[in-house]
Design a binder for these strands. Structure first.
Length: 419
RNA sequence: GUGAGCGUAGCUCAAUAGGUAGAGCCCCGGAUUGUGAUUCCGGUUGUCGUGGGUUCGAUUCCCAUCGCUCACCCCA
């Protein structure tokens, strides 16, 4: 007996009853993003491993232990993309998209990280990402946040999410800050837990992010990035706050907000929620001004964010209304009706904005009407020998209390046009 | 990688202080041989996650293993 093959852990099938929510959410996100002048870019799922290792940061968990990496037949090391920005910049440089030009881009698709799955976190997950190149901000920073806010409003979850912002300063001030932070935590090392001792070596800023209640006081009195910002970084952050105040986009300054990936600088931000379990970040991003140059392109300021579609779906599902397509279930009785009906269905679909489900597999009237009722069709059109003889078709309403109608077959071809 | 909880019908779940299992939903047929959704009647549902141990006998007890879920870590 052969054991059934199952899906890989953390890689989910999206079945028909859920896929329609995905389609609708993606439609809304695309439509809004296009409205802001962003264009879609579609990128490979596979890249050379080096691309991610260099950009995301050698010491991050993503690169150290979460990448799906394997050898190609010719010995090249390839990796399934764990995030979208690296590939986007690679493509931008490769095709000269950033050369003396502003680019507003977005992407949507699966990402892969080899983590232990839990609610809102899977090994194949989906991100919708928005990126802008060639703009230094802070105006573009505000645009990003307004754009995201439009998502939440359109999806009716704006009351469930909170915008948190912070600044990491430029490379110099960040390095200086990091030095003082390391010193501070080194001096208090006996108070740190194991995780934080590890972070002290790998990514000290992340200690600020610790959930350990015992460390909260220590973190509270740690050095603040704001005291190490140079005037330019200060002006950038103040400028952003001023715009956000002006457009009345609510936000919280969270000095402990640190992004996990190495490439972030200046403004960083997160949209968080308390509604979906432990994975409470729905959407996050920031500046990565050094990344294009680091990857061999001309120095180009850049900012972007990504939102996790699985997490968004958890927030959205119950209050999302799906668009409905009026649908006719075509009941066909007898061989003559089947032959005529197939062609008739084609004409109705072509001339009207309606769905037509043709009954396949025969069955008597009762059985076919049962199927019609179980489908989400709002009416059944009945065609049998009697109708063919009189050149009429019966139209029966399944969801409304309206009498059945007889309509000339030639008229049914355009009958639904106005609906 | 660490920890906890859970695996019984397609789905949601019962049950047996060890004697090879039920209910609802779903699906199919009939009452109604050309009128659905309501109602009534009937029918199919299973290597009780897998392997081993104890036992006359294990879905039940023990061990192992796999899977799922949630949390830690980390991140969207």
């Amino acid at each position: 007996m052969v054991k059934n093959i199952q899906a890989i852990r953390g890689m989910n099938d999206i079945l028909p009853d859920t896929s329609r929510y995905w389609v609708e959410i993606e439609r809304v996100l695309r439509q809004i993003t296009l409205q802001y002048g962003y264009q879609e870019i579609r990128l490979p799922l596979l890249e050379f491993t080096q691309l991610f290792a260099r950009t995301i940061g050698e010491a991050t968990d993503i690169v150290e232990k979460e990448m799906y990496t394997f050898l190609d037949r010719n010995g090249d090391s390839l990796t399934l993309r764990p995030e979208g920005t690296a590939g986007c910049i690679r493509a931008g440089i490769e095709h000269g998209l950033f050369y003396n030009k502003v680019q507003r881009l977005f992407y949507c698709g699966p990402m892969f990280r080899h983590e232990r799955p839990q609610k809102g976190r899977y090994r194949q997950f989906h991100q919708f990402g928005v990126e802008a190149y060639g703009l230094a901000g802070p105006d573009i920073d505000a645009e990003m946040m307004l754009l995201a806010m439009r998502f939440w409003q359109e999806l009716k979850i704006d009351h469930k999410v909170e915008l948190q912002i912070n600044t990491l300063g430029d490379a110099d001030s960040r390095a200086k800050y990091r030095e003082h932070l390391v010193k501070y935590f080194n001096d208090n090392q006996d108070m740190l837990d194991e995780d934080c001792k590890r972070r002290l070596l790998s990514n000290p800023l992340r200690i600020l992010d610790s959930k350990n209640p015992a460390l909260q006081d220590l973190i509270k009195s740690a050095p603040k990035i704001f005291d190490y910002l140079d005037s330019k970084a200060h002006a950038h952050f103040d400028g952003l706050c001023k715009i956000l105040d002006q457009v009345k986009l609510p936000y919280v300054i969270n000095p402990r907000l640190v992004r996990g990936l190495d490439y972030y600088c200046l403004t960083v931000f997160e949209w968080v929620t308390t509604d979906i379990g432990a994975q409470n970040t729905v959407c996050a991003g920031g500046h990565y001004d050094g990344l294009v140059a680091q990857m061999g392109g001309k120095a180009t300021p850049a900012i972007g964010f990504a939102l996790g579609l699985e997490r968004l779906l958890l927030l959205v599902a119950e209050n999302l209304t799906l668009p409905v397509l009026d649908t006719i279930y075509l009941v066909l009785l007898g061989d003559r009706a089947v032959t005529v009906g197939m062609g008739l269905a084609e004409k109705i679909r072509k001339n009207n904005n309606v769905g037509v489900i043709v009954n396949c597999g025969g069955g008597d009237l009762s059985a076919q009407l049962k199927r019609a009722n179980k489908s989400e069709a709002n009416m059944a059109a009945i065609l049998g020998d009697a109708e063919l003889d009189s050149e009429e078709i019966l139209l029966k309403y399944l969801r409304e209390d309206k009498p059945q109608q007889r309509i000339k077959i030639e008229n049914i071809e355009n009958f639904f046009i106005t609906k």
